[in-house]
């Protein structure tokens, strides 16, 4: 039985397993380009993970719970996306980064002829890509209870609203896929630490004051 009362911690912990997986795929194929791709993902993790965690903590603080269900119920009337826009934007960025998707696809970059996955063919590639798509879908789905009021909505039942909202978040992420140049961590790291981390901290401060007050 999963400890649902700390669902957000579970989500965060399991998502970090992606770091290990991608790096091991890159390293394990014993080839230079995949190795570089694997290391790119570690650098990417260093850039996105802290802002991502602060965004999650902000939500947990606002709902005063680590349970996804509780968090969704806490948004009765006012969705978190409305009064935590910075946390939501950072969350979306970090979803792109954790699924190394679109502009954050440098670990499997075109310039490395496929980077970490370069040597994978057949079923290996299928499993890897399936895992990557699953990561993207799960992270999109998690945005619904975290920021978008969970199953709340008129007419339709809760599960249907959750599906619709997941679909919309996913559609946004898929749309952005080819529409931006890839972001390299040697340049993005500074922005992540100097802009994103302070921004999420300020957001958390604001939420903290509101919760106390």
């Amino acid at each position: 039985m999963l400890p649902w009362s700390i669902g957000v911690v579970w989500f965060n912990a399991m998502e970090v397993v992606a770091w290990v997986s991608v790096w091991m795929v890159g390293w394990g194929t014993n080839s230079a380009f995949p190795l570089v791709g694997g290391y790119r993902f570690l650098a990417q993790g260093l850039a996105y993970e802290l802002p991502h965690m602060f965004a999650l903590i902000t939500v947990a603080l606002g709902a005063e719970s680590l349970d996804f269900g509780e968090i969704a119920r806490a948004q009765d009337g006012l969705w978190f996306v409305v009064w935590m826009p910075v946390a939501f934007l950072v969350y979306l960025l970090s979803v792109l980064a954790m699924a190394f998707w679109g502009p954050f696809g440098h670990p499997v970059g075109h310039d490395l002829a496929g980077g970490a996955v370069l040597e994978l063919a057949g079923p290996d590639r299928l499993v890897f890509e399936a895992g990557r798509y699953a990561l993207l879908v799960v992270a999109s789905a998690a945005a619904v209870p975290l920021f978008l009021g969970g199953g709340a909505g008129p007419l339709l039942p809760g599960w249907a609203w959750a599906l619709v909202k997941t679909y919309l978040v996913l559609a946004l992420l898929v749309w952005v896929r080819h529409r931006l140049p890839v972001i390299r961590m040697d340049r993005f790291m500074t922005a992540a630490w100097v802009v994103l981390i302070p921004a999420t901290l300020v957001q958390m401060l604001v939420v903290g004051i509101v919760v106390l007050g």
Partner: peptide
């Protein structure tokens, strides 16, 4: 260059 820069839509 745009393809190497990872901007698939513009390269296309």
């Amino acid at each position: 260059l745009l393809a190497v820069a990872g901007w698939a839509a513009a390269a296309e």
